[in-house]
């Protein structure tokens, strides 16, 4: 745990070093950035943009899961579906998220709905892949054990299948989140009048690098917070039974 703090400290130190080599208006140092960040927070305007970005992230992730999870489960269950959709997944993963965004904005208009659809479509294939893998890896020997002991379909589902698929669901959501928040900022930059991505671009155009870095930091902190305060504890609870990996 202590090592982790040292590591964060080292990263900030490196940032400082680099800022010493570059002019302050091009690459501000951590202190100036922090001051700007605190001013933004005092000012209060930051919350609206942060909130709308988070809504897009969560909406996009939910839509991606809504499409990706059933597709992944279906592919894991049926060889035929797998053969059919395999290529779709590959294509879906290869298309740049910029293309999804542009097509959605043209077809659906420059609105919130188009934004979330574009984010969801970008995230869906990677979520599907994780679930596909998870369902394929279900240990059928445990399922037949449960059936021999008269377990009902519901009991098999809840007690034997769900615990096996759960790690893959978690992985897909985390992986999906990693994909989604980067796209969201990007899509805000090209087609939204608010949000963290819009603000980054706005300050970039005004050549205010302090603000650019301040917004980057605040967004990173929020995402790390989600990871540390939501995902880690959930994971620890779900997988406490697992043996620790020892090398």
């Amino acid at each position: 745990m202590l090592t982790r703090w040292y590591s964060v400290g080292l990263a900030i130190g490196l940032w400082w070093l680099i800022s010493l080599l570059l002019p302050g208006n091009l690459f501000p140092n951590p202190w100036d950035t922090a001051v700007t960040l605190v001013d933004n927070i005092k000012d209060g305007a930051i919350w609206a943009d942060l909130a709308i970005t988070l809504v897009r992230v969560i909406g996009g992730l939910a839509l991606g899961a809504l499409i990706g999870m059933p597709v992944g489960v279906w592919m894991g269950l049926s060889r035929r579906v797998e053969n059919w959709l395999d290529a779709w997944i590959m294509i879906g993963m290869s298309i740049p998220s910029l293309c999804y965004a542009l097509v959605c904005f043209i077809v659906l208009g420059l609105n919130e709905f188009a934004t979330i659809v574009a984010i969801g479509l970008t995230a869906a294939p990677s979520i599907a892949i994780n679930l596909w893998e998870g369902v394929k890896n279900i240990d059928m020997r445990l399922v037949s054990m449960a059936r021999v002991f008269d377990a009902s379909s519901w009991q098999v589902m809840r007690r034997v299948i769900a615990p096996q698929v759960m790690p893959y669901v978690m992985a897909s959501v985390r992986f999906g989140l990693g994909v989604v928040w980067k796209i969201t900022v990007f899509i805000e930059l090209i087609g939204r009048p608010n949000g963290v991505g819009f603000k980054l671009y706005y300050w970039y155009q005004l050549a205010d690098m302090r603000q650019v870095l301040a917004w980057t930091v605040v967004f990173t902190i929020v995402m790390l917070g989600i990871e540390l305060l939501i995902f880690k504890p959930v994971e620890r609870r779900l997988f406490s039974w697992r043996p620790g990996v020892q090398l």
């Binding site: 020997r141 445990l142 054990m145 021999v148 002991f149 039974w241 697992r242």
Partner: peptide, 11 residues
């Protein structure tokens, strides 16, 4: 039923 492997639920 006793299987060739224990088939316990590891979690």
């Amino acid at each position: 039923y006793l299987f060739q492997e224990p088939r316990l639920l590891p979690w």
